[in-house]
């Protein structure tokens, strides 16, 4: 059964593009990554799912029910963590969490305590005394306190220190094991790689591709740059698996996919003064997908 079904979802803000023709499904129990650069339409898609905005055309369903017409009913089983969290400044953390819990018809007090302990959150402080990171923790507790069947996270890790990110991801994995489905949006590839089983890639409002995480990481591209003392014959690097070969003065850069030993040998044949081997950035991964798309067309 699919938990989320999005069909040709389109949203224009006046004439400005939000998203165009977005379609994808998220199955029960999946941890689904939604990845794209800032402004690509991740938040627009998520906000439509939550019925915060209305689509221009197309539809989205959660738990088999339409997102707009059945919004309140669906919301019972959703936990949502926005990228920036804001709460009523003058409230105490515990009062805010109780207020949040009062919307769900179950007793969440034990769960609030548990989560707050895990996240190391002081429940007695006032919201406006909290740092950005601590507010985020309130958001996380608020998102999970009613044990939702679907957890929607929009750029969740900003503001959390690496240790807390770890705790948070552990929490998410536990929830997932208990049966919750997770939709996580991010512009950081590594974040998605850590936890997701499948991803949709969005750029300029359109889904470029939906695929399994394993397939995405199989395309294990390396970004390689070498600085050579003097300009050499670059054609020796023109191997199968090498792309985007470019030289800028003493700096030679290219992407490589394939047996890493092969390329290392080739590099060792040249007199080099420096070398960088890096994971490609998200933009560079997109570049790759764009080209693939063009080749097919």
């Amino acid at each position: 059964m699919n938990i989320i079904e999005i069909r040709n979802l389109t949203k224009y803000y006046g004439k400005a593009r939000g998203i165009v023709d977005v379609s994808f499904d998220v199955g029960a129990g999946e941890v689904f990554g939604f990845i794209g650069p800032n402004g690509a339409g991740k938040s627009t898609t998520i906000r439509t799912l939550l019925s915060l905005i209305r689509p221009t055309s197309g539809s989205a369903a959660i738990f088999g029910k339409d997102c707009i017409t059945h919004a309140p009913e669906i919301a019972k089983d959703i936990g949502y963590l926005p990228s920036e969290v804001f709460y009523y400044d003058k409230m105490k953390v515990i009062d805010l969490l109780r207020y949040s819990a009062s919307f769900y018809k179950k007793d969440c007090s034990k769960r609030i305590k548990e989560l707050a302990e895990r996240m190391d959150l002081d429940l007695k402080r006032r919201i406006d005394d909290l740092s950005f990171g601590n507010k985020k923790k309130v958001g996380i507790v608020q998102c999970l306190l009613h044990e939702p069947r679907l957890i929607i996270l929009d750029e969740p890790t900003s503001g959390l220190d690496p240790l807390m990110q770890q705790t948070f991801f552990d929490l998410l994995r536990e929830e997932n094991r208990k049966g919750s489905t997770i939709l996580l949006s991010s512009h950081v590839l590594i974040e998605v790689q850590r936890i997701c089983s499948r991803v949709a890639i969005i750029k300029d409002g359109r889904i470029i591709r939906t695929e399994k995480m394993s397939e995405l990481t199989e395309n294990n591209y390396k970004k390689i740059r070498i600085e050579t003392g003097r300009i050499t014959d670059d054609s020796r690097f023109d191997l199968p698996g090498v792309s985007h070969l470019e030289r800028k003065d003493a700096l030679l850069s290219f992407f490589f996919k394939g047996n890493i030993n092969l390329i290392m040998k080739r590099i060792s044949e040249v007199e080099i003064s420096n070398v960088w081997i890096e994971e490609p950035t998200l933009e560079e991964v997109f570049l790759h997908y764009y080209q693939k798309g063009e080749e097919r067309a």
Partner: peptide
């Protein structure tokens, strides 16, 4: 203005309520 709409409007209540 206090940016709490994301909190309140994603709760299981309709906007009319």
């Amino acid at each position: 203005s206090a940016k709490t709409a994301d909190f309140l409007l994603t709760k299981p209540v309709s906007r009319a309520i």
